[in-house]
């Protein structure tokens, strides 16, 4: 099984629709994978949902989708086969209703791609199918409505929001009401976007630096700044910030400090988990206590930023539920 088949082939779409890649999606059903941390940052979901709706695309979420469970696999609380079965259940449900599955979270995206990779191991694949068969055997009961098989050639294709926005960048730019007024922006891709193993399939992909965020920021009228810790981890590290907070927040501190050192006005990321670590006021306070310096650089998700630039109501982008340092100042500067 070739796991790259699961990812949407962006090059093919660019070749098929060189003028307007958005046209590829016109007759497709698009599903947004629900990331748990969107609870804290609803603008991450609304930012893309509202935009796709305005573009008159067919967009939905799947009621039967569960969390990706990556966090439990990473903490040894479920096996690879159980992780695989949770993934296959989600893929199977979403495959019934949609053609394209979009991800606002690096963690969810990596979970589904990695869950599929594990199935290349025949033993894991058999155990995963055995678990799914257990559900099938109980299918007569009302409590078990699902029948699941591992489908090798899924109709459903997966795409990360960053790759999607980059592919349709002209449509994004055309929809913007404001620009970034030459503000200095530090980009943070996040480990599970930067370190995708499928990039090792070709030497070109492996060596090519990732620059999509910088290119988008430039198109939005901003000034992407290079900084020493550009590729470093946010500090979350599969819950290291919970288990070993002093060490993990040192990484977070170094990252934010490095961006502040080059005068970045704010930091943008395509992952809500990174955003949570980089922006949580409690973590900022701990960093000040442990490392003696107050860091004020605001952080924002790409989807939220696009929503602000499109002129969406504050509640639909950065939301009133969130009061991180200077975030409203950035909002004011962009929308003034």
């Amino acid at each position: 099984m070739n796991t790259t088949n699961l990812a949407l082939n962006l090059t093919e779409i660019e070749e098929m629709y060189p003028e307007n890649p958005i046209d590829f999606f016109r007759d497709k059903k698009l599903c947004l994978f629900k990331a748990c941390l969107e609870k804290y940052f609803p603008g991450v979901r609304f930012g893309i949902e509202d935009f796709l709706t305005d573009l008159e695309l067919n967009v939905m979420t799947c009621t039967n989708q569960s969390c990706c469970s990556g966090t439990f696999f990473q903490r040894n609380l479920i096996t690879r086969a159980q992780f695989g079965a949770i993934n296959e259940r989600n893929l199977s449900e979403i495959n019934k209703i949609a053609d394209i599955l979009l991800f606002s979270c690096n963690g969810c995206y990596n979970s589904l791609i990695r869950g599929r990779e594990f199935l290349n191991n025949p033993d894991v694949r058999k155990k995963t199918q055995d678990i799914l068969n257990q559900l099938k055997n109980k299918n007569n009961s009302d409590n078990y409505p699902g029948k699941y098989e591992i489908v090798d050639d899924l109709k459903l294709k997966l795409v990360h929001d960053l790759d999607f926005f980059y592919l349709i960048k002209n449509s994004v730019v055309n929809a913007l009401k404001y620009d970034l007024k030459d503000m200095k922006v530090a980009v943070h891709y996040g480990c599970h976007y930067l370190n995708l193993s499928r990039d090792k399939d070709s030497i070109d992909e492996y060596l090519r630096p990732k620059t999509k965020l910088e290119e988008l920021i430039t198109l939005f009228g901003g000034n992407p700044v290079d900084y020493q810790e550009r590729e470093s981890c946010c500090g979350w590290g599969a819950s290291q910030v919970v288990i070993h907070p002093k060490e993990a927040l040192k990484i977070t501190f170094n990252k934010l400090k490095s961006a502040e050192n080059v005068g970045a006005d704010f930091m943008v990321t395509p992952c809500p988990t990174c955003l949570y670590t980089l922006s949580k006021p409690e973590y900022r306070e701990k960093m000040q206590k442990w490392y003696g310096e107050k860091l004020e650089i605001p952080t924002i998700h790409l989807n939220e930023l696009i929503a602000i630039l499109r002129g969406c109501e504050e509640e639909r982008c950065i939301t009133l539920r969130r009061k991180t340092p200077r975030i409203e100042e950035i909002f004011e500067i962009i929308t003034q």
């Binding site: 370190n195 981890c233 599969a238």
Partner: peptide, 12 residues
């Protein structure tokens, strides 16, 4: 071993 960030950088 409990300090690993599972960031997959090493794999890359």
């Amino acid at each position: 071993i409990w300090y690993c960030y599972l960031c997959e950088r090493c794999k890359r």
